[in-house]
Design a binder for these strands. Structure first.
Lengths: 226, 226
DNA sequence: GTATGATTCATACGACCGTATGAATTCAAA
DNA sequence: TTTGAATTCATACGGTCGTATGAATCATAC
C-alpha cells in the first residue's frame, strides 16, 4: 500500500543528490573537453560545479571513475543509435547491399546531431571524442575499446559489403580517416575562424548532407595502382 | 697549427652537452607523443634521458620552453618543405592553375615522409601533431598559430584557385577535415590493428599516392544543394 | 520525534609537480 | 697549469594533486 507513496517520495528525495551527480558530470565534461583530462583537477571540477571534494569520491570513487562516467553517459546512447540506424538501413535494403550514402549517414548522423543539440551538451562531447582518438589515456582507451570498437567492426562489415572492390584493410583505413576528419571538422564549430573567413555555421541537416557527400566521394575514390 | 687540434677537441668536447640537449628533446618528444603533454613530468623526461633535473632549466628555461623547442625542431623544416613544394608546383604550372593532386601532394608529402623516416623520429612527431589539432594547450596553440597557420593560409589560397567553384569556407573546411584525417590515419601506423586485420603497413610512396587520390576525390565531391 | 540511510562537508595525508639556486664538475683556451 | 665559461649535479621550496576519513547535515520512514 505504501509502496507507491514510498517510491514517489523516494524519487523526489533522490532528486537533489542526482542533481549533484549530474551537475558534476556536466561540468567535468565541459572542462575535460576544454582543457584535457590531465590538465583538469577534480578540485577544478568541484569548484565549478559548486560541490564538495568528497562528492567525487562518493559518486564516482576516483577520478578515473568520473572520467568513465562522463564517457558512458554519452557513448552508450550514440552507439545504440548508430547500430539501430544501420540495422534500419540494411532492413530497408532487403537482401541487396544498401547504398553507400545511407550507411555513412547511419554512422555519422548521431554524433553530428548530438554535436549540434545544445540540450545534449552541444559540441562539448564532440571535442572530448576528438581527443579520444588521439589520446592514449588508459581509461579512455578502455572506454573506446568497450564502446566504440563494436560499432567500428559492425560498420566495417557493412561497408565491405557495399564496396566489395575495397580490401577490408582499406575500408578500415578510410573509415578511420573519415572518423578522425569528422571530429576534426566538428571542432571548427566553436573555434574562432581565421581572419577573413566567416564563422563556420550550418544547421545539422546541411552539415550531414555535406559530410556524407564528401565521405562518399572519398570512399569511392579508386585505389591507385601501387 | 693547433687550430686543427682545437676544432677536433672542440667537436669532441661540445659533443656531450649538445647531446644532452638533443637527447632530452628526443625523449620529450617520444613521451609527449605517448602520454600527452600534461601527463608527462619533466622528471619523467630527465629520468628517461638520463639527465639531471637542472638540465631542463638550463637548456630550455621552463617546461613550456621545452615543449616549444620540441615542436620547433620538427615544425620549422616541414613547414619550409611544404611551402617550397607548393611554390615548385605553381612554378611548374606557369600561369595555369596547377593540378589538384599536385597541390595536395605538396602539403601532405612532407609529413608522411617524416612519419615514415625513422631517422626523423618516425611516427612519433606525427602522433604529437595529431594531438596538436585537438589539444587546447596554450603553448601548443601558440606554436600552431605561428608555424602552421601561415601554411594553411597559403595552401587555402592555392586550392581556392584550383577549385574556383568551392567557396573559401568550404575549402577551409575540407582541408581542415583532411588534415585531421591524415594525422588520424597516420596513427594507425603504430597501432595494433583490430583482431582479424593485418597490420597496416605500406611504404611512404604508396601511402602518399593513396592519400592524395582519396583527398582529391573528396575535394572534388560536388557540394550538395542545401 | 526519532531512528536510519543517503549525501555533503571540512580537513588531512603523502606524493608529486615545476622551478630555482648554488656548489661541483668539465673542458677548451691561454 | 691556471683561468673562466659552459654544463651538470644535488637539493630545497611552495603549491597542487588524488584520495581517504569521519563528523555534520539532510530527508524520509516509522
Amino acid at each position: 500500500m505504501n509502496s507507491k507513496k514510498r517510491t514517489a517520495i523516494t524519487a523526489q528525495a533522490k532528486k537533489a543528490p542526482a542533481e549533484t551527480r549530474e551537475r558534476v558530470l556536466d561540468v567535468a565534461e565541459r572542462l575535460f573537453a576544454e582543457r584535457g583530462l590531465d590538465a583538469v583537477s577534480i578540485r577544478d571540477i568541484i569548484a565549478a560545479a559548486e560541490a564538495n571534494l568528497g562528492a567525487i569520491n562518493y559518486h564516482f570513487g576516483t577520478k578515473d571513475g568520473l572520467i568513465e562516467a562522463v564517457f558512458e553517459r554519452r557513448l552508450v546512447p550514440s552507439t545504440q543509435e548508430r547500430l539501430r540506424a544501420l540495422e534500419a538501413v540494411e532492413r530497408a535494403a532487403g537482401d541487396r547491399p544498401p547504398k553507400l550514402e545511407a550507411v555513412l549517414e547511419a554512422i555519422f548522423r548521431p554524433v553530428v546531431e548530438e554535436a549540434m543539440d545544445p540540450k545534449r551538451g552541444g559540441i562539448t562531447f564532440g571535442k572530448l571524442m576528438a581527443r579520444c582518438f588521439v589520446d592514449p589515456n588508459p581509461v579512455m582507451e578502455r572506454v573506446m575499446r568497450s564502446h566504440f570498437t563494436p560499432v567500428v567492426k559492425r560498420f566495417d562489415a557493412a561497408l565491405s559489403r557495399v564496396m566489395p572492390n575495397l580490401s577490408p584493410e582499406d575500408v578500415f583505413w578510410r573509415m578511420h580517416l573519415l572518423m578522425g576528419g569528422l571530429h576534426q571538422s566538428l571542432l571548427l564549430l566553436d573555434r574562432k575562424p581565421p581572419p577573413g573567413l566567416p564563422r563556420f555555421q550550418v544547421d545539422a541537416e546541411t552539415y550531414i548532407r555535406r559530410f556524407v557527400a564528401f565521405a562518399a566521394a572519398a570512399f569511392r575514390a579508386p585505389l591507385p595502382k601501387d
